[in-house]
Write a protein that binds this DNA or RNA. Structure first.
Lengths: 139, 139
DNA sequence: ATAAGTGCAAACGTTTTGCCCTAGC
DNA sequence: GCTAGGGCAAAACGTTTGCACTTAT
């Protein structure tokens, strides 16, 4: 993969490392807090800047915002997501749903040139199925 | 459908009417401008308030934000979307993609109770395929 | 008459930006 | 030494909220 970055910095390295080390699809602020443990002087602006550029470079994925903030995914392999409508958490789907597009005709796509797809299942996570009192997160 | 609203107002009526009259998945501000033509005194806050409550009532759908703002959909029938990665516009997919979940096992969903799904195809819309210069919208 | 709903403007949380400084090359 | 990239703080942006007023019931 070509790197569009001209210099290697500790900040970007750590951001990427932390993002790949978790499977929780963190927000920029959550990632900021993770990175800050090892690099206390990093600024939130730098986290945003790098996430944006890493996403544009295709090295990470920027997810659609369900509630208030954007979430980022260190795993760029195609995979589906599970989102809890109560607490807002997003998990990776253990298996990719079989989406058979072979029978879909070109003009089912309204003239679009298709590059990929995003599939997210909405549901209630195990945690929230237990306690009826919903977590404050989400929309 | 039960209406959780205690009073009928011209504002809410118009918002719903305009949203159902377009197929462009407008943002709150776009809708504000549409409604303002016939009801110049309406405020943006009212548009937000009503969109939120209409969505909670299940009468419209609030879509995930792809770029900066939330988009709303007057069509609550299950259907897929096409999003242009260049200009950010969102169209309805003419046909719903065949998603066969009969073969998917329960624990492919990691303990989630599944309520539904969102499927969005990413691609380049006809407009943007024509002119190479991309519209400024989108991320 | 009552209170649901509106208009307005201020406040809020997230993200972007400008400017100067730091540090990778 | 040159300049890409970072730190910081202000600004921008979409959205929410408090409060006084309007209006459907």
């Amino acid at each position: 993969m070509k790197t569009p970055f001209q210099r290697s910095t500790a900040q970007r390295q750590l951001i990427l490392e932390e993002l790949r080390g978790v499977h929780t699809h963190p927000t920029a602020v959550e990632l900021f807090d993770l990175v800050r443990v090892r690099l206390p002087k990093i600024s939130l602006g730098t986290v945003y800047r790098n996430l944006e550029r890493l996403a544009q470079a295709g090295m990470i994925a920027k997810m659609d915002k369900a509630g208030g903030e954007a979430r980022f995914d260190g795993n760029i392999e195609p995979h589906d997501h599970l989102r809890c409508v109560r607490c807002g958490r997003v998990d990776d789907a253990p298996a990719q749903a079989p989406l058979d597009l072979s029978s879909v005709r070109a003009d089912d796509f309204g003239g679009y040139e298709i590059l990929g797809h995003r599939l997210t299942f909405l549901g209630v996570c195990p945690r929230c199925r237990g306690n009826e009192t919903p977590q404050p997160k989400g929309e």
